[in-house]
Write a protein that binds this DNA or RNA. Structure first.
Lengths: 147, 147
DNA sequence: CCTGATCTTGAAAATCGTTTTCATTTTATT
DNA sequence: AATAAAATGAAAACGATTTTCAAGATCAGG
């Protein structure tokens, strides 16, 4: 993403926040930019370090609060992890699934169209009414695979 | 499961722990029995409350340590949750996936045979080498579905 | 069955990620 | 500018989990 595209997208997200009644602040802008600029899913502390390059007096609390707002508006999705903290990603259209590189953390999305049929089968077999699903794959991305 | 079957299985688990160099203790037995006796996935605090009916002076720390040992031996699997703590389930043969009732917590397993093909497709499309996957479904079990 | 080496235990404190509280500063509106 | 509402940072609180450490239990060898 070019610097101009990053500015553009950052501004769009701030517009959406504003439309929802939130205010436009420098802290929020720095955090949004850090999320959008990274090809990786970042955890709150990483976002904090990144955004503090713009706003040295930023508090970690503000990062948590901003993530919450963005998640409420559906602009980011949270990626669950085995241990410790979660990571934050720009949300894509519709429900997507994650493919996470266990070496460098790069995240790729994939659509789970094929899954609908599987879920119907499972629902029929078990009698459950399926409401939600979590699918995350872990592996090595092309760059991290041994040659 | 009948009381006799529960005793039998509990004893088998303690045998396995012992074979791996762990000692046979009353605390461990109470915790193992609580895990095996429940049809639900229990979190550490629930296991603590349950096992304390047998061993009133049990410490919560011991519950955590015992879960860790059981997980190391592959006797239990941990079920991830959106918020807060995780839950513990007796592990089944091979890799299984969970179907969790969001109302009563009952857990059903299902095999993900159909998934292998999907994962191959995704690997081919993305260039990732897939190492591990997490699939958990949430919904309402037959008993909790509105009639 | 003693006896020591080693493992296990419980209480308390420490840790880690996250949330709450509250007084102060900013923002958007008048 | 003046005001009401929301955003902020520091510090404290929080919940789940882990570590520390001294005391207790288990197991192997004599």
């Amino acid at each position: 993403m070019s610097p101009a595209e990053l500015d553009q997208l950052t501004s769009e997200w701030l517009d959406k926040l504003q439309e929802s009644g939130y205010r436009r602040t420098d802290r929020c802008e720095a955090i949004v930019r850090a999320i959008l600029a990274s090809p990786r899913a970042m955890d709150p502390m990483e976002l904090f370090d990144e955004a503090r390059k713009d706003i040295p007096r930023l508090g970690l609390v503000t990062v948590y609060r901003t993530i919450q707002k963005l998640a409420d508006l559906g602009l980011v999705e949270r990626l669950h992890q085995e241990e410790g903290c979660h990571r934050v990603l720009p949300a894509t259209q519709g429900h997507q699934h994650f493919l996470v590189c266990s070496s460098c953390g790069t995240v790729t999305y994939f659509a789970g169209d094929n899954l609908a049929g599987l879920f119907e089968t499972i629902a029929a077999q078990t009698g459950f009414e399926i409401q939600e699903h979590w699918l995350q794959l872990f592996g090595l991305c092309p760059a991290c695979r041994p040659a």
